[in-house]
Design a protein around this nucleic acid. Sequence first.
DNA 1: CAGGCGTGGGC
DNA 2: TGCCCAAGCCT
Length: 350
Amino acid sequence: MTIDIARLRRQLLAWYDQEGRTLPWRIRPEDRIAGGPVADPYAIWLSEIMLQQTTVPHATPYWHRFLSLWPTVQDLAVAPRDDVLREWAGLGYYARARNLHACAIEVATDHDGQFPDTLDGLRSLPGIGDYTANAILAAAFDKPASVVDGNVERVITRLHRVETAMPKAKPEVRKLAAAIADPDRSGDYAQAIMDLGATVCTPRKPDCSACCWSFACAASAVGDMERYPVKAPRKVKPVRRGTAWLVRRAGRIWLRKRGDAGLLGGMTEVPSSPWLETGHASEAPPLEAEWADRGEVRHVFTHFELRLAVREGEASPGWEPDSGYWADERDLGNEALPSVMRKVLAARRS
DNA sequence: CAGGCGTGGGC
DNA sequence: TGCCCAAGCCT
């Protein structure tokens, strides 16, 4: 069967003009100045990086904070990377922060501070993949684009009842989505279809009665919306265990900076034993001290669950760590502490 | 290219 | 409580 693409576009944009959300980084159609810039590409880019796998409520305060600290891409480019990581702490997926800084430097130095306005130009920058490049193209430059994020995947797979499981269905979904994307109101269309997925065509209990696309939706027609997108079964999450050592002395605490690559790369940590799925039974403390049990910190990462036994001890006057540094406990706000390490620190005696 | 890579909220 | 989910990217 064929789909009335013109009607889909018309009804989606009409719905968006009426019901679309106002988001801090977006300029609503009615607030735009004819001939003026559609939006600040830097602010749009910043929002898109923060929103990768992250909810709008979680990302929004970070977006405001970053813009106030670093109003332009040049400001961000010359900022110390540790400052960027510190401000990103709590947002997760810290490779995004490392790439964010690298991207700012590249735009500032190689592109004269101007974000590229082409798909290939954007895609070549660190941290910008297919989705983000299209999102910037649409939101910042109003150029023809097709954004395919999780929302769009859900809307499109339901519209067409795509039976192929994700992520194998991605090429098919991309093609179906591109056929509908409106090149004439690219920015509004991109925001509209994501809004539709976020507020109407939701993962559970979608509100088809309020959906401007229900007239054409194959899944809604048979009442089997929640079947889509089809996904492969999840794998079980292993448990890793270790011991974190809270070493204190005279109002200071022993901290370390993690290596750049991998989990929590570049972030601050409380020193700990390796995190292992098996064994580890008797991990030797890093120094001789009287160790107090501070319970267990549990933290769930994307691909494993961590259970850290927390022990606290006071270092003798002569002892110095062979790695890391002493941090004043009043200055922990200056540290790039991921959430799991905040939990560990919160377990210490106050 | 399947898997590594955070976090917090909803139910 | 445990599971699912959220505007993905990189290797």
